[in-house]
Design a protein around this nucleic acid. Structure first.
Length: 205
DNA sequence: ATAGGGATTCTC
DNA sequence: AGAATCCCTATT
């Protein structure tokens, strides 16, 4: 959970094989724990797919969801201890035009280009070939610490906390755990946080 | 071998 | 509200 919080404001840098550079600041994350966490892919123990989750921290865990979308995770903790943070949304910093072209949606607002785990990986051209990739080295895909200006703005706006998305199957105990973190009020959030100002749910009688 | 389901997104 | 889509997991 510490990692999920501290990743907010950090910059994801991607250099695609063609040399195309894209980058964005993380505005939303979700924490997933080890085998005890019934919402985590680690709940079945170590398998071929989830092996990176059990590996050394600072590496990527990239998987395919719903047969169509790719999700990027940052592995946490020491080797042997499963855990990862899903990166759910980025605020674009570099390569907006490239992201828009990759998304194939010319009319999308800049802040929406990487708002959501699937959109994010599409905008940065992150595929399963990067599964297990070391994110601490400046090669292909890596993480940079939060720039001072971004860090300052994040501090001013605050961090919103809420339950994780799409994990109802894990049962109430795990589905309601407040392990989703976001830059409060940011336009690049994948969706609003419950109780967050500015966007209410359905009207209440 | 095969069935069931999903850390999503877009359109109707 | 519902489809698209395919890999992973579990079961036979």
């Amino acid at each position: 959970m510490q990692l999920a919080r501290s990743l907010l404001g950090c910059v994801v840098v991607r250099v695609a094989p063609e040399g195309t550079l894209t980058a964005g600041a993380i505005v939303e994350t979700e924490a997933y724990d080890g085998p005890a966490d019934l919402a985590s892919h680690a709940r079945f123990g170590r398998t071929a797919r989830t092996a990176p989750m059990f590996g050394a921290g600072g590496h990527a865990y990239v998987y395919l969801i719903y047969g169509l979308h790719t999700c990027l995770n940052v592995v946490s903790g020491p080797e042997g201890r499963a855990g990862a943070v899903l990166v759910r949304a980025l605020a674009p910093l570099l390569g907006e035009a490239v992201m828009r072209e990759r998304r194939g949606r010319p009319h999308d607002a800049a802040a929406r280009l990487a708002a959501g785990p699937g959109r994010l990986t599409q905008a940065l051209a992150i595929g399963r070939e990067l599964d297990g990739h070391d994110l601490t080295l400046p090669h292909q895909l890596w993480l940079a610490g939060p720039p001072a200006a971004i860090s300052r703005r994040l501090r001013q706006d605050g961090i919103a906390v809420g339950p994780r998305i799409g994990v109802a199957y894990a049962g109430p105990r795990w589905a309601t755990r407040p392990w989703r973190f976001g830059w409060r009020g940011h336009a690049a959030l994948s969706r609003p946080f419950p109780g967050a100002a500015g966007e209410a749910g359905r009207g209440e009688p």
